[in-house]
Write a protein that binds this DNA or RNA. Structure first.
Length: 152
DNA sequence: GCCAACGTTGGC
DNA sequence: GCCAACGTTGGC
């Protein structure tokens, strides 16, 4: 089992929104970055654990935990001209973009702010805290996962 | 295959 | 809303 971190803008889709979905599960559509896509498509497995990160908001940080419940399949929003994620280069034969399904597990006891993640020496190598990193999906090592849980 | 121009992310 | 840092696009 692997650990991941996935970013979402809470104004669009927050941890509470995930919890409120039918079955508390949702497909993770809209990823339009190749690095993030490749990890989702090739490496994310059912049962993997995910930190749900709130980005581009007043208080960026880790809000909760989700579980991967369905492995990668084509992101249909890429083929929908009405979608803001529409990609004219995507097709049924060449979907180009993929997504997984995740299920709400729990919220952390408190939101762990990015600021505090940056201050934790155990997390100094985390992609999230590296300058200029914009990856919306990234692997988290087991030691980083544990270190973050200890900050709860 | 280079690289300038453009678009996006996301913290602040 | 600003803007630094990246990623992507497309002309050549």
């Amino acid at each position: 089992m692997a650990y991941w971190l996935m970013k979402s803008e809470p104004d669009t889709f927050s941890i509470d929104d995930l919890k409120a979905r039918p079955g508390s599960r949702e497909h993770w559509d809209g990823v339009r970055n190749y690095q993030a896509r490749n990890m989702m498509r090739d490496q994310m497995k059912k049962g993997d654990q995910v930190f749900f990160y709130h980005s581009a908001c007043a208080e960026p940080g880790i809000a909760g935990i989700a579980t991967v419940v369905k492995e990668s399949y084509p992101d249909h929003t890429a083929q929908d001209p009405e979608s803001k994620y529409f990609d004219p280069k995507a097709s049924v034969d060449n979907p180009r973009w993929f997504m997984v399904d995740v299920k709400y597990k729990r919220k952390l006891k408190r939101l762990i702010p990015l600021k505090q993640l940056k201050e934790n020496p155990a997390l100094s190598e985390m992609i999230l805290v590296k300058k200029g990193s914009r990856l919306s999906i990234m692997p988290v090592s087991e030691s980083e996962w544990q270190a973050i849980l200890e900050m709860e």
